[in-house]
């Protein structure tokens, strides 16, 4: 049986896994953004707690994905919920760190000018700091997404489905076709999302902040 035959025969299963994979990634990135952008902004206003919080998030990042899924499996059980919790945890750090550094590195002359001309703290944040930091924040979202697409392949191990399921079946039965059917789409997915968010990054960079190419 050739690979093409395999794909056309198992078309539905592959598509289902792909959709589930996208669901896992999409949901956890969305929750990750909702948590880490406000948290990152909060940390720029409370620099004293920023160090410990970022260090904690960094430590979570060093915990291998397999271990985190293991924890989730033991503590919560199988299914999509534990997978999404774990993936969300991984999504937080890059976005959090980039939100924090992006806003912290906004040149002091801009914030001083905005205060001096009578902007409130909220106006300074939304009209000046966030627009200037936006490219950095989106880079964080891009990094998170690539991570999550990768770790989501492990979600199959705890019964959450996704493309990892196919790879996993392939690995445990030495079936190359299953491996390819899972690995290739997941790689392409990561690649496409990376490119798309990179494009978004460029579009959302205010024209005045784009580096002039001479």
């Amino acid at each position: 049986m050739s690979f093409i035959e395999f794909v056309s025969k198992n078309y539905n299963e592959i598509l289902k896994s792909l959709v589930r994979h996208i669901e896992l990634v999409g949901i956890s990135i969305l929750i990750g953004i909702l948590i880490s952008i406000p948290l990152g902004i909060f940390l720029t206003r409370h620099k004293r707690v920023a160090g410990p919080v970022l260090a904690l998030a960094g430590t979570i990042q060093t915990i291998p994905g397999l271990v985190m899924l293991g924890f989730a499996l033991v503590l919560i059980g199988i299914g999509m919920l534990p997978a999404i919790i774990v993936l969300t945890l991984y999504a937080i750090l890059p976005i959090l760190r980039n939100t924090y550094t992006g806003i912290t590195e906004v040149d002091k002359s801009y914030t001083e000018a905005s205060r001096g001309i009578g902007m409130t703290n909220m106006q300074t944040l939304f009209k000046v700091e966030i627009p200037i930091a936006l490219p950095t924040i989106i880079t964080g979202i891009r990094l998170s997404t690539v991570y999550i697409v990768s770790w989501a392949t492990l979600a199959g191990l705890i019964g959450a489905g996704g493309l990892g399921d196919l790879i996993w079946t392939g690995l445990s039965t030495y079936n190359t076709k299953y491996i390819l059917a899972g690995a290739v789409p997941s790689a392409i997915l990561a690649f496409i999302l990376n490119g798309l968010i990179g494009l978004l990054e460029r579009i959302l960079t205010p024209r005045g902040l784009r580096r002039s190419r001479i």
């Binding site: 990768s150 690995a183 290739v184 790689a187 990561a190 690649f191």
Partner: peptide, 17 residues
Amino acid sequence: EVLQTIPSLALLALLMI
């Protein structure tokens, strides 16, 4: 960069082939 974009499990599985 592309090499790092590939999900690790996918890369390992492909290398295993």
